Simulated assay, not measured.
Amino acid sequence: MTDLDDLPRRTSTRRAPADRAFRGVLRTGGITVLAIMSFVGIFLLARAWQALRVAGPGFLTTQTWEPDSGNFGIAAVLVGTLLIATVAVSVALPLALGTSLYISEYAPTRLRRTLVSLVDLMAAVPSVVFGLWGFFWLQGNLTGIARWVSTVFAWFPPLSVEGADPDDPLSPVTLYTSSTFVAGLVVALMITPIMTSIMREVFMQAPVGEREGALALGSTRWGMIRSVVLPYGMGGIIGGTMLGLGRALGETIAVYMIISPVFAVQWHVLQNGANSVSSLIALRYGEASPFGMSALMAAGLALFLLTLAVNFGASSIVARSRSGASS
């Protein structure tokens, strides 16, 4: 007997033509998506290179936006973008999580179908409609809440409002309008449906055997959800949240209609004045000079890279979760 006889026998499987075609279509689609994303990044970099070469490292630290005079940067609008997205995700996460758990675990079958349809229809509402609703109705009804929060939690700097007198009931309400808080709430309602849909789908895929086993051992419905559904669906929670965050970072029209643009770092989320990268581009696009257009492309490149970083970070976290690994 030779050593070759001890080697394991190799097996090969011949794929059917349909399997090979399907595999080729999937591979082509994946490569196409990566190619398009790369071309977008290269396009933005090529158009922004002139402005980036003039601004240098100060592009990330300068708050003003005067590209024609050579004094411009995205420090203010980048901070505003992150604050609006943070407010939006902070409100949308518990709302989406509670809604998805109710639909998947508690709602009767007929009501579940109705709620799923309503959530999907809410995701199809145009952003300009949310912007109109936020501008004409929401912010006028939120001034009292914003005043109360700023009075009670004035010791926390982001929730304080400069120039507001809590002892004066006639202090102007314009201090609390067109703020990061209002824009964040509007964006939160826009990203809640897609977050809810992703979480609901993952929760409903939790193993039936583990559900029944937990209930058979005497667990309550909430105990089963806490020990089985939520751990299994952690990937869906993180993935849905990051997807909502990605949309919140790039939301344009609704934010543009609500905020009062300021080119300074505005840490007070309840105070009048905010800004974002996408709103800056929408605001200055029509009147921009050739060099100003290059500066706007540089701002868009920064937002593009920030969104990519968020999505890649989320995908790595989801892949380590149970639901992400199984899919």
Rank of each mutant, 00 (worst) to 15 (best):
E105V: 10
G144F: 09
L101R: 12
L142I: 03
W133C: 11
P67F: 05
W148N: 07
F136P: 05
Y102G: 06
G80M: 13
G140R: 13
A75L: 07
P67Y: 06
L115N: 05
D68P: 13
V116D: 13
A92F: 12
G98D: 00
V87T: 00
A85D: 00
L83V: 11
G144M: 12
V119W: 06
S90M: 09
V87E: 00
L95I: 10
A107F: 05
A85Q: 01
V116M: 10
P126D: 10
L121V: 10
N71S: 09
V77T: 14
I145P: 01
F130A: 06
I84S: 00
P108V: 14
V77R: 10
I145S: 14
E66K: 09
L95D: 03
V149T: 07
T143K: 14
G80T: 04
A76C: 08
F135W: 07
P126L: 05
N141F: 09
T81D: 06
P94N: 01
L118C: 14
I84G: 00
V77N: 11
Q139N: 07
T99D: 03
S69M: 06
A85V: 04
M122P: 00
P126T: 07
A123G: 11
D120I: 04
I84F: 00
T64C: 02
F72G: 05
I84W: 00
W133N: 05
A92H: 01
D68Y: 08
L83K: 07
F72E: 01
T143Q: 11
V89L: 12
T99R: 03
S117D: 05
